[in-house]
Write a protein that binds this DNA or RNA. Sequence first.
DNA 1: GAAGTATAGGACTATGTGCC
DNA 2: GGCACATAGTCCTATACTTC
Length: 793
Amino acid sequence: MASSSADPKAYNLAAGAYNCPDCTKLFARPCDLNKHSKSHTRPFKCQHSDCKYADLGWPTLKELERHNNDKHSPNPIIYACEYEGCDYKSKRESNCKQHMEKAHGWLYTKSKSNGKQPADSSPVAPVYRLKPGRHPASASSTPLLKQSPHILPVPNYHQDFTLYQDDTDHSVRFDDDDENTSHHHDAPQVIPWTSPATRLRRNGTMIERFDQTYHGSQPLRVSDNPVDPSLANIEPQLRTSAAPPSTSEACGNGGTNTSETSRRTRSSRGPSRKAADRQRIRTRDAKESRKRLKPDPTEILGDDAEFTDSNMPCIFRHAHPHLYNRETRNKSDPCHTTHRDISTLARHLLRPAHGLGVDPRMISSFKIQDNNYPHPRVGLCRRCWQAFFDPLEFRNHLDLKCEKVSKGKREKWRIMYDLFTPLVRQHNEQSSLLQDLDMAGQENTAHRTRGSINMSKKAGNDFRLVSGTVAPTKYRTSVPSSSSLENEIQKLREENRQLRESLLAQGPRGESVASTVHSSAVHNAFEMASGSGLVSAPRMPHSKDSNSDQESLVGYMDSQSTDVDRDGLMSETPETFVRQKPGHSLPSHTTVHHVPTSPSPLQVESFQDISNFSQPSANVSLFSARKQPTSLADSAYGTCTDPRRGSLGEPGQAGCADILRGPHKSWFDNSTQQRHDGGSLTLFGDYQFGHNNNSSANNESIHNNTPSSSTPKVGPNMTVITTQTTQQQPQQQDFSGWSNPNPFATASTSQPSHNFFEDASFDFFMAAQTDCGEETGGYNPTSSSQNFIFPSM
DNA sequence: GAAGTATAGGACTATGTGCC
DNA sequence: GGCACATAGTCCTATACTTC
């Protein structure tokens, strides 16, 4: 309920979340709980008494309005398909788009940019057109285009597979008069998977960008920082141009750029419109006067076309544009938006796309699920803005009330940038690489210090990194060597060569795409579509052992596949999952999770002692170990209600992470066959927790071992550990007799599994790792029985 | 295909804080 | 006390995605 937000009892300090009194969901913020509570109260009632929504109501006014347009409007807004010869019409814009996408192969930019054209996006815009006179509210802002779906006809080799024979972007463009726009390479298109030709083009783009970045102006040297090519763009000492817009200027613009639509449609809440306008004018005037009085003290980064105070980019995208390439990683689309406030940016970093631990007090990467682009393990206090590289020290710091240090938003942005965006080597690199590691670490330290010194000079701050806080060797950040990047690019080059050959061999356009499925390169291209390795074109064989793109440079950073990416996987999941045999019941309170095929032993939380881990190769590529997505929060667009999506869900739901985390657990070390008390658990891997139905009936069924339509699914390579109590030796559940063996399973190895576990001291950070505005399943510390399934490694 | 539900980020207001 | 700024909380739009 909305009132719960103000109820201190609803605030769970341990979990850092607000409990919904009407269900079991937890929220990081009261406003999120408030929003959620409307899904229970559904306060927006339909005015038509004969409508079922007169009683049921809708959670939001927007949904009520949409319902009215759908059902009760005498003159509803109609969206018509713009393709010639198609008379499809819908009252929903999104449905119309959906239709054009599915029926006509329309490619468009899926971006949550709030209607704004992303800075680096192509001019590709929706093809649909609002019917004149039907939608006056938006018609003025929506270009009524001369519709020309020139992309038709496109041979539809597959329903979702559009292959362009040539390398031309066939998307309809709206501003073709912009001759400076590169339509050829910069059209961000999101399609379920990538055709070989598109893949070829994208690889080419990546290679081109790599060459420009690292080989363009000067030869690549070992001492060059290959990770942060954009860093130079924001180094103040490198600037000679005029100062960037001041904070006041930016804020003023931000205020006056308020969407008029938003103002018109904003519900009547808070102060009156006149009062709000007065305040806005007052604020604007005040800020303008401030601008005249003194310069922006937070002048840190200097001018940059991409960086203004109201236009702050995602630190990760800014640091690694080649990794957050929306052409190859549609999941990174949210990273292409910019932020006006640090709080908004921090909120963004909380998203599953990055997975940092963020709360009002701190930002932490201690708990981030590394893949093959490990992050520095850093905790940043948002009060004193001191960085910590030791999680225990960090936690101790947060337990104390430190002195608040005022910093400007640029300063903060820079601190976050410096701390979190460098990539690090695996912490268990073999000694043969230690020299490189140290060298790179020193470079990185220098890089950070350089920026910090400037901050110190210009803002007089005492950013602790300047004053000698250097990450311990164990946690010291480093960067991938240039040779590693070269190797990855070389892989792309080689793959492109194969793609070209494959496409040439494929013959004229129109030939069945099936002719390419046996080409490993093309297959890899499908695998690559998201960089996640989870995309498999339906009807295509899944090759677990394929040396696919997830191992390449553009694999990913820490993001995971999008839902679109994972469609391919889900098309196969009915085969990969195993259902319980009739009559076969699980032990009481056993919870079953799906864990994909064996994660790499490199996927470990890095701050534990993993020195005894075996390493496949001393010279293993930084990018080579990825086999499956590992983040629990697995999608930038995650939701808790779908197993394909990875946001933290409520107990009993797929993707529910926190239910498996928390203090006071007992866990079983699969390698040593020993049980350990206490500590907390983090399972990495794309697993399903029980089932994806959050109904109470199903929750009941899972706890009572009652077979239901959502009987717990079991994935490959799993070992079920049942710990009835913290005092009992766990028992191992044998699933060998279950049906439907995983077609992709591979022989288990004897890799130790204790890398799943973490010290209890890190529990704190889990509390913050909730998806903003999303539900998290809270671990119930009162439960006396915790049951886990671990992948056999 | 229609309808329902979800997330991401923009933008605004209210409030807290430090400084003059 | 007023100003400037930071931030939390909230509402909103856009749109992705699921379910039926």
